[in-house]
Nucleic acid binder design. Structure first.
Lengths: 152, 152
DNA sequence: AGGTTGAGGTCGATGGCGTCCACGGACTGT
DNA sequence: ACAGTCCGTGGACGCCATCGACCTCAACCT
């Protein structure tokens, strides 16, 4: 993980579809060298995936909610986690410090669907209570912060 | 936005680096047709960006926090927003219903940096108070949920 | 009914790109 | 000094991106 690797990571976080040839130009190496570096970044787990970022409203997922979960005393956290994993509407799942063990980011199409989701969450074994906040608008999301040192 | 478009969106949310030729095979069209469809999805704003998803710890961003913001009564929300926009550690920013106007997802390297960030947030004009939750671990994040109808 | 138009597809060609391989220079430990 | 390793380059070859020409079908107008 030298400066060139960080540079590649920044470039790919900005645009995952850059060609190896273009990446090579940007970092000042040959295309095969970049190809090998990126391959290593992928197989070592630094780069987890390449994803298209989609405007959620346009694909029928216009409602975003953030949901805090309080577990039952004595609940099996792993079981709760597995139950959450099976719910596709839960896009992100953080295990938190504090009274609320989990914070979930969920995306659904309508408020009615959100209601159903909350009911389902409250019914899953191990969940004591939920607290839901609705995002009125998403100002930005997953903005990548640059990590490469500025070029000397 | 027909079924093929939704299919393309799902494919690219799963792997943004798929070639047009491969996408074409998956949806049963020719490569130029897919090229044109994807181009339209991009220019119409359905596809916002293509991003490499990186394991944050590996690039020195091991601390994730979720921060609720209460505004001063009479604060200018737009000004607060602009101030937040200038803070690179804030990866996501949601405008929320409820007492806390904003919910921020921030990523920093160390707890010390988080402390500095919170101080900075509390100092920005219009911010009355902050409430910070620390993510002990991220179970998953930005998991794409499929939107395409299953192939008949 | 027939002609026109436009959207959206296929096909073929071409230039650039991804990817494999052989080779070479710098660092390291002995 | 020397061998081994790492990491790079350059060349070669086949696939891919991308453009233009053409086709098809449906909607619409006259």
């Amino acid at each position: 993980m030298d400066a060139i690797d960080l540079n590649l990571v920044d470039l790919l976080r900005g645009n995952a579809r850059l060609s190896y040839a273009e990446l090579a130009r940007q970092v000042g190496l040959s295309a095969p060298a970049v190809h090998e570096r990126v391959g290593k970044l992928e197989s070592s787990g630094v780069i987890r995936a390449y994803r298209a970022e989609v405007e959620p409203e346009t694909i029928g997922l216009g409602v975003t909610a953030l949901i805090g979960i309080v577990e039952d005393s004595g609940a099996d956290t792993d079981d709760v986690l597995e139950a959450f994993r099976g719910i596709p509407e839960i896009e992100s799942c953080y295990f938190m410090a504090g009274v609320e063990s989990f914070l979930l980011k969920a995306r659904v199409g309508t408020i009615a669907e959100l209601e159903q989701l909350i009911v389902r969450l409250n019914r899953t074994p191990g969940v004591a209570s939920t607290r839901t906040g609705i995002a009125l608008s998403t100002k930005w999301e997953n903005r990548p912060q640059a990590v490469a040192p500025p070029p000397a």
